[in-house]
Amino acid sequence: MAVYERSYRRYPGPLTSARTRSLALARYTWEDVRRSRLLSPVLYAGFLWPLICVLIIYLHHNFDALRLLDVGVNRLIPIDTNFFYVFLSVQSTISFFVAALAGPGRISPDLTNRGLSTILARPITRTDYVLGRMLPLVAMLSAITWVPGLLLVGQQTTLAGSGWLAENWRIPLALVAGGLLWVGLLSLLAMALSAWVRWKPVAGGAMFVIFFVGAGFGALLNQLLDVRWGHLMNVRTLMATVWAWLMEGHATGGAGFGLFRVFEREEIPVWSAFLVLALLCAACIRLLAWRIRGAEVVR
């Protein structure tokens, strides 16, 4: 099959490893993501707060700079659990917008014109396909959540000494585990909605509905029935509960920052937060398994 001959021939050359095929799909997905004009500013905004945090940590350990700026060290935010809680909350809020912009357009175009029947006819599994489509999103969300968080811990440990890390050993673990849980949940949810709703803006809107309307409905339920279980419908409170438990070993009311708060006197058990998050992830995987098929079954 040469251009000049215009004749068919088989391919005699080398093949890539079967395990890396989903990376090829991830590369194409990344190229598509990069074309989004709206996404880039939001993604870049995700690096702003980490840079401010780098500066704060630096100032904490540089008295010359503090003197130059005429700022007392007691006026700076202390580098403790709360500092990293704020960091994770701010970054997770931005990452939500990144996921809402980048996620819904990943699978729906393949479903619109039955592209899956040719894609899945290749030597890749359905899991490979979903991973390939999800990987760029996971990478982007990680790059603005737990990865810079871990770098900040590294900076603080370098400047304050290993004693600080020994005292705050829960922080890096919480950043990685809590960050990965959040990134995984967001990515799965974005993929599932993209597979479920073929129209991109509607899929993006559905993410807002799940995160905000669900919370409102839960709060209403709490008011009407005088219970606290309505918070199980608030994904942000669920995450705040898990993060607080990871960072401090318990999830007390008032913990958290911004959109991610554990409500005072309305705390929910940590196990229930984990359970609901696990169920949500399982539902997303089930939805993906149902929608991602090479051929639709007409019953």
Binding site: P109, T112, N113, T118, A121
Partner: peptide, 18 residues
Amino acid sequence: RALRSLIGFMPENDSFIA
């Protein structure tokens, strides 16, 4: 998986990413 690496499939219906 091994089998699909030996096959090329042209489906009946439209199948593309527009």
